[in-house]
Design a protein around this nucleic acid. Structure first.
Lengths: 230, 230
DNA sequence: TTCCGCCTTTACGCTCCCCTTACGCCGATC
DNA sequence: GATCGGCGTAAGGGGAGCGTAAAGGCGGAA
């Protein structure tokens, strides 16, 4: 059992679905997150980066397929569609837009949970078990959501952690400004590179031995940033 | 279009399923493989290692769930279950035994194909990192966006990297001045060949053993440049 | 309510990257 | 031998992009 429960975001406008699915997920060992509209759902994905998403296609404020498409622009985790519509074309379209599964309403909770397990299982083995990432005296434990330096816990704000975690997970790969911004702030702020300068600067202040000559978070001018692990 | 079509093994005892699904898969660009019993199916998976498996749970010779379980002992690819039984417990059990999806009969071919695409898509992105390009002591890792020489990282500016990456990807083919200029600087600068002379010169300074007699980035007078990899 | 922490936004100095120009070399052509 | 086009090298000016500091706003906690 992991220390932190896997978080599942439910995007649905019907309160009874939340009342019904929330406790079921909780009982199954997940942490349910809630969004009541498409807009809220997209913000939730960007903000919380949940381990999986359950998305109802029949939302009042925007088309469910549009939500799916926008989400896929910056979210790679599993998305399970929930829908009362059982037209085959609808299913095919949703699946080809990047959904991992499609469950028709009315549905059995047991089946939905099983399908979530499948989606999470695939994601799990694709990424492998997440061990703490080390870089010099700094250690980043993604599972415990904890950053330490010389064994001491370093206080990092939520946004700072998000940026650091993305960089660390990329393992030496350059992440472009756009990659980071859409992942952490959402696609609406894909141009605000100044955010990154500020937050990377703060992380360097807290983590680098000499913040003015960084060895851990490197700048790739004109491109983005790169994290160097041991 | 890939040179070799992805192979899908259908395990089902009903001939009409094969008559029906075989041509559909073929038309969708896959190569259908056939097995008419559980035993035959397991042998088929081991023998052909198909890219995905469609497994009917209602087989005459052995229980479908047993086939699934045995298959998972040595096969990691996607397995989509097909079944006339719609009992929820049945679905949950199959999904937890390692199935990637569960489709009830009667089913639409379109939906089955869409679900196969989902399964294959997930598998596809799990593997396949592209190998670095080597040329003597120089290594270009397009994925990590990194250039090394004798193992040490070489500092290349964004424009320099763009030019180098295009040349390296062409793998020995000549790229004309126009090709490179439009790709890196845009069509507006398709005539500014002087840009290339400067940047190719800088790359040679950084990467060639003897910059005055280049062996990696060669000049094709009047045409363009060529990259020689190992 | 007040206080505090975090995020956002603006301002400013600085580095270094890109573009440009100048010049010398080489081979082909006249 | 003179001329010319294509190429390579060197160097400088301008500017885009980066890092840093700091102030204002917002929401949550005390």
């Amino acid at each position: 059992m992991s220390a932190v429960r896997q978080r599942i975001l439910i995007i649905d406008d019907e309160p009874q679905i939340h009342r019904f699915l929330g406790p079921a997920l909780d009982a199954a060992g997940y942490e349910p997150l809630r969004a009541d509209s498409g807009q809220e759902g997209l913000r939730g994905i960007a903000l919380w980066s949940p381990d999986a998403v359950v998305l109802d296609l029949g939302l009042p404020d925007m088309d469910g397929k549009a939500v799916l498409e926008k989400a896929r622009a910056f979210y790679e985790g599993p998305i399970v569609i929930l829908s009362a519509r059982d037209r085959e074309a609808e299913k095919i379209q949703a699946l080809d837009l990047g959904a991992n599964d499609y469950v028709e309403k009315p549905f059995g909770v047991g089946e939905l949970l099983a399908r979530l397990r499948v989606a999470l299982r695939q994601r799990g083995q694709a990424q492998g078990p997440l061990a703490p990432i080390r870089a010099g005296a700094v250690e980043i434990d993604l599972e415990k959501h904890l950053v330490t330096r010389d064994g001491a816990v370093v206080k990092v704000s939520p946004r700072e952690y998000e940026v650091l975690a993305r960089l660390a997970q990329a393992r030496g790969k350059v992440l472009t400004h756009k990659d980071l911004l859409t992942a952490v702030w959402g696609p609406a702020h894909a141009q605000d590179t100044q955010y990154l300068r500020v937050f990377v600067g703060q992380l360097r202040q807290k983590l680098e031995a000499d913040p003015s000559t960084p060895t851990m978070i490197l700048t790739e001018p004109g491109i983005g940033y790169r994290f160097i692990a041991d």
